[in-house]
Amino acid sequence: MEKIEFFDANVFIGRPHNGMFGAVNNSEGLLEEMDKQGISRAIVWHIFQYEGSPVEGNRILAEEISKSDRFYGCWTILPPQTQEIITEDFFKQMKENKIVCLNVFPDWHRFVMDAVTFGDFFQQISERNIPLFLTMGRSCISWDSLYRLMRDFPRLTCVLCDIGIWGVDRYTWPLLEKFENFYLESSQLSLEEGGVEATVKRFGSERIIFGTGFPVRYPKASILQLVHADISQQDKINIASKNLERILKKEKL
């Protein structure tokens, strides 16, 4: 039986300005935690991308993830119009810095995430299969704005992270049903009793991406849930790493 390898899609480094239990301030600290948890690879972002400066946070992240082959990066984007982050050679910069996906915090960074702001750019990342990671966890987007985004860019590869403590199947299942490149990150889906099993039964295991939510959440929580979920071993392997590998292989930078 093939062993389950864990590829964590939801981790940040850096210490939040208001403090956080167990946050790690550099890649060495994160590697130590990953070894402790049996996690082989991770897509990482830096909390300063959200809390401080997306520009400087992206730079710090690139520096930190360059220290290990086990890391891939997630850069934060801002509206292309201000050219703070999205410049002419943006995709080249992503490739050179091992950045494989993007995230966005519209309400916190004060812009509107729609076709007016991101029309051409979101068309480009849809065509290039570059995943956009969104979080429901930092008061950054509403369900309405997420639905609008997916209606406007139905081919967009979108990974919804930190889906919430209360089960959100009534919100997410219509999106899974309508948009084939829409995925759920697992760190809070695993919290829901039967959430992973019910989603797999309805949509297949290909639509869930493993994440721990470290350092906010406990990695062993989502690991233990997935290992003992009432789904097949192949489904577990898909969720733990294969789905994310498949998404990244399709990417054209």
């Binding site: 089960g167 009793e193 690991i223 233990l224």
Partner: peptide, 19 residues
């Protein structure tokens, strides 16, 4: 405690041990 059937037992067991 877990509020079951809200939350998953393995998830919370893993969390407690991970503390």
């Amino acid at each position: 405690g877990t509020d079951w059937p809200w939350f998953n037992h393995h998830y919370y067991i893993g969390a407690v041990i991970d503390s």
